[in-house]
């Protein structure tokens, strides 16, 4: 029994090790001066061919590349703000559209409910490229291609948040909702004062996943935004110029900083929200 416990612990920490090593390599790269980066990572940076000398800790720690990126690369800032402009209204819109719909799916019986929910699930699964034709036609018709709106508007109607929030609302005990009705609360009052507070973990989870997905999005901006001045931060690295290669690791670090901070802050909600979605069928 004791032996097995040791084996399990080693296995779990082994898995964590596999996660930490790539992240540490990235972080170390962000703190390396230019010449160390060229010495270690000439091939991965696409600048030449030389043996890779991977390191978890920089030999000569320096804030040069971070400084270069944050102070002398205005383009990077523009893309950072573009991402915020695109993702934050999208997540807010997802909340406004998805929360009431999820409440309807979770708490009401109405004809066609299962079919409709099935359609939502299919839409959630379909890869972007498949719905892209339809989306493109609408955005073109509305004349909002090549603007922030072309990412925000379709993003709002993603059905994944509806799915996750529905699962979360379903776990609210019926007794609580009925008690509210008995006290004379109307449908909307109940939604705002019982549903939203008790479904909060699921809502937070859905919005966080929406935020992460929007922040990572590559396909949508590449397809809908011709003007590179509108591109979000996720496209900075794929599009980085050769002479800026030394700030690539720093850019990688800054790009993941905001989503990681949000995850660490919302971790508890995420676990409760995921738990809610996993429990009831």
């Amino acid at each position: 029994m004791k032996k097995r416990h040791v084996f399990h612990t080693i296995l779990l920490y082994g898995a964590c090790f596999l996660i930490w090593v790539p992240l540490l390599i990235m972080g170390a790269g962000a703190l390396m001066p230019e010449d160390e980066l060229y010495w270690r990572y000439l091939s991965p940076l696409g600048l030449g061919r030389d043996r890779v000398r991977a390191a978890l800790i920089p030999s000569y720690p320096s804030g040069d590349s971070l400084g270069e990126l944050l102070i002398r690369s205005p383009g990077f800032f523009v893309m950072f703000w573009n991402a915020c402009i695109q993702v934050i209204p999208m997540a807010a819109g997802q909340f406004l559209a998805a929360a009431p719909a999820a409440w309807a799916f979770a708490r009401f019986r109405f004809p066609g409910k299962r079919l409709l929910f099935g359609i939502y699930v299919i839409l959630m699964i379909l890869p972007f490229q498949v719905t892209q034709v339809s989306n493109y036609l609408v955005l073109d018709g509305m004349g909002i291609l090549n603007s922030h709106w072309s990412l925000i508007l379709p993003g709002i109607w993603s059905t994944l948040p509806v799915f996750i929030m529905t699962k979360s609302f379903e776990t609210i005990p019926d007794a609580l909702v009925e008690a509210a009705y008995l006290d004379g609360a109307g449908e909307f009052y109940t939604f705002f004062h019982v549903g939203l507070p008790l479904g909060y973990p699921g809502i937070a989870t859905a919005l966080m996943l929406g935020f992460l997905d929007g922040w990572n999005a590559l396909e949508q901006p590449v397809t809908y935004l011709k003007d590179k001045n509108l591109w979000p931060i996720a496209l900075y690295l794929p599009d980085i110029a050769k002479d800026k290669a030394s700030v690539a690791f720093a850019a990688a670090l800054i790009t993941c900083l905001l989503p990681v901070l949000i995850y660490l802050n919302c971790q508890e909600e995420l676990e409760q929200g995921v738990a809610a979605s996993g429990v009831k069928q």
């Binding site: 900075y236 690295l237 990688a252």
Partner: peptide
């Protein structure tokens, strides 16, 4: 730790994967 990679954008990790996967 286990959930952390979910929050890391694909674009951030590509360089690291290249460090592992490139010919050198």
């Amino acid at each position: 730790t286990m959930v952390l990679p979910m929050a890391v954008p694909a674009a951030s990790m590509v360089l690291v994967w290249k460090i592992f996967l490139c010919p050198e």
